[in-house]
Structure formats: C-alpha cells, structure tokens
Design a binder for these strands. Structure first.
Lengths: 272, 272
DNA sequence: CAAATAGTGTCTCTAAGACAATATCAC
DNA sequence: GTGATATTGTCTTAGAGACACTATTTG
C-alpha cells in the first residue's frame, strides 16, 4: 500500500482530457459628458470596454478583453492581469459573474471561460484616454427589458452600434443567465456574458459599497446619486437619496465652486 | 490571408498549458429530528453531504462530492451529474459559489474547481437513506462567527466531528471568500469552499424563493419558518413570519391532524 | 434677475419587530 | 385540564417615496 508521498510522485493528470481556461472581464466605467449650459452638471454614461478582434475567429468583431489562464495565477489574477494589459489600470474591485462552459461556445475547441465584472474608478479614468485608432474602446451601454419578455443590449461607440437580443434563461438564487437570440456582432457568447455582468453589477449597486469604486476620494452627493442612477437606470428624489446615503458618507469641509449654482459640499466615504 | 474556416482547420490549442477542471458541490438538506414529547414539532438540522476519500491524496479524510469536467457537458451539468451519482437525486436548484484556482490547492497538480451550492428537497430525502457503512454521509452543519473576527465551522456525523477555523478574506460585491486557518481534517481547500457555500446559501435564503426548494409540495407555515430559521440561524416571531410570507403562499384547504395541538393549515407556493 | 443645483423639513405609506390574546387539538 | 402549536390582531418603529420650500451661486 502506497503512502501519499509515493502516490503523488507517480500520479499523472493525463488520464483526463483538459479544457483550456480563459478569464473574460466586463470592465465598466462611468463617463461624464459636459453639458451645453454652463450651469448644468455633467451627464453620466455607463460604458464598457470592448476589444476589436484582430485575428480569427470572429475577426473584426468586438469582444470582452480576456485571455488564457496561466499555471502560476488564480483566475482572479488572470482577470486583473488582462485588464491591466488593456487599460494600464488595475481595478479596485472584481466580482465573479459565472462560468461559461458550453462545449460548443468557442469554434477553436474546448475552452471554458470564467467571467468577472470590474470597475474602473474615476481617478484612473484620466489615464485611460484611448487612442481613436486603437482596437480597445469604451462603448456606451444600454440594457433594458423589451416588450415581450426579452432583453435588448445596445453598445455604441461613435458610429459603431452593436445590438443584441437575449432572453432570460435561469435566474435562481439571485443570479441571472441569458441565452442569445441575436448576438449583435459580438464575438463568441460575449453578448450573454455582458448581459449577466450588467445584471450582477446592478444587483451589487443596490448596496452603496459598490458605487464608491466609481467615485473619486472626494465627491458631491449629486455625483454619487448620478452614478447610482446611471448604473441602476432609475432616478431618485435628491432629498431621499441624501437621507439614504447619509449613513455611509462624511463631510470633508470643502466645497465645489464656480458652477453657476449653490456650491456643493464635498463628502468622503465614512469608514465604519 | 486565411479565411476563418481555413484558420480553424489549422488551429491547435496545444500552445497553452491547460489545467484540469473539476466541479465540487455543497449539497444541503434539512433533516427533521423527532422530538421527545409527542406534542412537540420536530427539530430541524442543516446537513451537508460529504464523501470519505478512498484514495490518495487526503486518503480517509472527508471532502465535498465532485469530479472532473467532461468535454461534452457544462460545469453546471457536471455538478448535477456528481450529485446524482452520489445521492441518486437530481437537485432542483444549483447556484454558483465561485472558482477556486490557487495553483497549489491540489497536490496532484494544476486543478481548478468551480463550486456550486445545491439543495436536496424534502421529497427526495426519503430516497436518500444512506447506508451507515457508506463513504457518503450527511453531516450536521454549524457555522458561526467566533469572538475574534474568525469563523468556526463544525461538521458532525455520529461520533465524527470536523472542526475548521477560517477568516474572512474578501467580501466585496456581496460574495465572501475565506482563508483557512485550520482545515479540520477536510481535504484540499474544501473548508473554505464550504464556508463560502454556506454564506451564499444564507444570502440566497433571505429571499423566500430559495426556501421552497427545501420544502415538499404542501407544507405548514411552521415548517416553512423552521427551515428558514435553520438556514439563517436566527428566529422569528411566528406572527411576523406569517405576515412576511403571506404574499408567497396560498392555502390548500387541507390540514395536518393528530399532533397534540391545534391542526395546522397546509399551504403551497403561490405561482405569481 | 434667471436658471440651475444644493440642501432641509415634513407628511405618508409600508414592512418589520414586539407582544398580547385567542383557538384547537391529543392525551 | 395540561401542554403544546396555530392563528389573529394591534401597537410601535424604521425606512423609503413624494413633495414643498429655502439657500446660494454665476452670468
């Protein structure tokens, strides 16, 4: 009878066929768009990083950034590494969305993907000024229920518009997965990944913790509110929103001036 | 310049080293334990299925059921298959917990594991009367915060008691991961998997949907309440619990009699 | 002054917690 | 009757939504 040490010295993993494993990341950013009137606060848009595929398969189509898992890292580390490579920014937060593993999901062969949501915060954004000719671009995101039980995902960047249609497949346990009716020129099963990622992001954004990752150190309550409204695609009464978040923030003492209206107090996150 | 078809016909995945992929499942069941007094309703215990390892590594230690992913199935299907093999029951629900992928987590080599929670409902339980000599057993579960910021996991079956100690590692986005201080004779990193699984289960049980998977078609509100209390490790005022769930259930018209106290109405889940 | 946001106060409504009281059975 | 659970009702409190009102700035 072999000891564990003897067993391991002779053990070979080659008995089983092995899949390739990738990590794909849905990296979100909030973009502020300056407004016409000097008085108006900037509008916010939720945007998502996509990469134009340079090679086969799905050549020329848009896809989530991602790459193959290496044997010296965890899947989370792989996801973070991919984002860093594409944006030069290391995200604060990363959240698992699910494993996409249908055997036919990749025409190259048996490749399963672990998908993450990440948030690129406001501070970092300034460094991420992307070259217009680059293969990596931030797309504006719209994701809504359409009339007949389906969902419509629209991603747009300048004159490029990707339209995908999905239906809810399973939603037990607070997670939602989608099946693709029309992939809208997104590569692989990435339309479904993006839909799941947005659902997970919105769910997480209901607790305010997540929102802070999108904000700079010091922020106004209006900015805070706009970010949450942008993610959740809803709106709040300012008075109620202030009351709701008051537990989580504290005043810094400084103000934002020069905006054509009453100066706003700056707040920071309150450490519990 | 090659077409996509030409590209794929020549593409080989062999450039990258590939990990083995497994699915491990934390399958929970609620066990009713008959009480001393004929009047008293049965007590509930949350229990978890563990398998005693027959071979190296970790021979003789207890582990979650699981197995290698096959190339004709998704990871979810693999998880369901493993549960079916061990219990002969196909669970109603399955929920992803996370991917465990530290390169050193398995002494046999590079093996990453996707972990799921599943629930074995009351109906099925009768078929799962396990042989006492079997390698598969249902362990009573206790998982609580200890004084100093750590967590204590206790799994017990007859005279076997496994005690693991863990600390919270990351808990962003409503998911919690743990690092192992003392594995308590659980194989691999399964103590951390179990801790994450229980956390995910409790979180899900806060919405009543999950609870129904533990209940038979027709149930009393006390039974419903006890199941939720068992999972969440809390207690409610019966009056308040009834009010809280009234939206989700409807009366069947029948009663449970012969219990030494007022007969209880039977309810069923209300379809929305 | 006009336009815009910043900020406060208050009413209402709903859901949850606490708790008292009654109903009904098997033995 | 006793001991147990089943069931109903009511008071209170916390939090969210609606909304009216005031404050402050820049051009």
């Amino acid at each position: 009878m072999a000891t564990e040490k003897e067993f391991l010295s002779e053990y070979r993993l080659s008995d089983y066929e092995r899949p390739s494993v990738t990590a794909d990341v849905a990296a979100f950013m909030i973009r502020s768009e300056e407004n016409s009137s000097y008085r108006r606060n900037p509008e916010n848009k939720l945007s998502l990083l996509l990469i134009k595929r340079g090679g086969h398969p799905f050549k020329g189509m848009w896809a989530l950034p991602g790459g193959f898992l290496q044997s010296d890292e965890t899947v989370e580390e792989c996801a973070l590494r991919e984002i860093k490579e594409e944006t030069d920014v290391l995200p604060v937060s990363i959240m698992p969305v699910g494993v996409f593993s249908r055997p036919d999901r990749d025409p190259r062969g048996w490749i399963i993907s672990s998908v993450y949501v990440s948030i690129i915060g406001d501070e970092s954004v300034k460094q991420v000024a992307m070259d217009d000719a680059s293969d990596a671009q931030w797309f504006n995101v719209s994701f809504e229920k359409d009339g007949g039980g389906g969902y419509h995902l629209e991603l747009s960047y300048e004159d490029i518009v990707l339209n995908a249609v999905l239906t809810e497949e399973s939603s037990g346990f607070g997670r939602t997965f989608f099946s693709i009716k029309d992939s809208g020129s997104l590569a692989f099963d990435h339309a479904a990944m993006i839909a799941s990622a947005i659902t997970a992001l919105r769910r997480a954004a209901e607790s305010y913790d997540t929102i802070f990752d999108f904000l700079p150190e010091e922020f106004t309550l209006s900015a805070f509110q706009k970010v949450q409204e942008t993610i959740l695609n809803t709106s709040f009464q300012p008075a109620n929103f202030r009351r709701m978040v008051s537990r989580y923030v504290e005043e810094t003492g400084s103000f934002v001036r020069g905006q054509g209206h009453r100066p706003a107090k700056l707040y920071r996150r309150k450490k519990q």
